[in-house]
Amino acid sequence: MLPNAYPARFIGLSRTVVVWLAILTVVALAVALPWALWLSPPDYQQKDTIRIMYVHVPSAWIGLMAYVLMAACALVSLIWKKPLADYLARAIAPIGAVFTLLCLVTGSLWGRPMWGTWWEWDARMTSMLVLLFLYLGYMALSNAFDDFTRGTRAAALLCVVGVINIPVIKFSVEWWNTLHQTTTVFKKQGPSMAPEQLTALLLMALAFHLLFALLVLVRTETEATNARLRSLGALGTD
């Protein structure tokens, strides 16, 4: 075990930050939820179902952002063999998987009343499902070996290769004919959404990102602590 395997300073700092993130998440949710469910107007076409967007789109953003972050950590872990990068990547995977799953489920609940289908194999939905499987593959592979470092490195390789899927998800709606509509917020001409609706979306996105950061810090401490326990012989072998 390397001497810096337990990132004591990082963990010490993160314990303080987690408390603040918890407070901020609660405040952000308290402001965002009334906007999402009540203060923002319905859509002229999709009526109140637009409110599903305020949980669907932030989930998708987290699912994508988390994967890029995880892949960056995996790359650092492969090149510089920093234990902290391993812990971060392993901490992010289940969180990213959960938000990707939420994106798929809420999308389904939105697609049924509006498009008339729970699920279709269009490019956007299929590539998002592939993202979920990449997360699950990373989690399975990283825990498949008795040797912690080996497992994490093998999973890191899969994770880095899987980055190819991210631009496919992002641009699927531009490259191919899809059932899913094209991008609303990140457009050259600016978001094509009313300001009150955009407010609801961005507030919810803020709350989701704060919660994501909180969960990552909590799970990173768990990963680091478990690695220390393993090195002390208290958890399996290393």
Binding site: I52, V55, P94, I95, V98, V105, L109, L215, T225
Partner: peptide, 29 residues
Amino acid sequence: GGYGAFIWSAYAVVFLIVAALTAESLSSR
């Protein structure tokens, strides 16, 4: 507006799964 079942289930699923993830994260830590 008649879409309550879809909208409330979406929010309920998000709340329950996120709550479960948070609880699991805290308890394993």
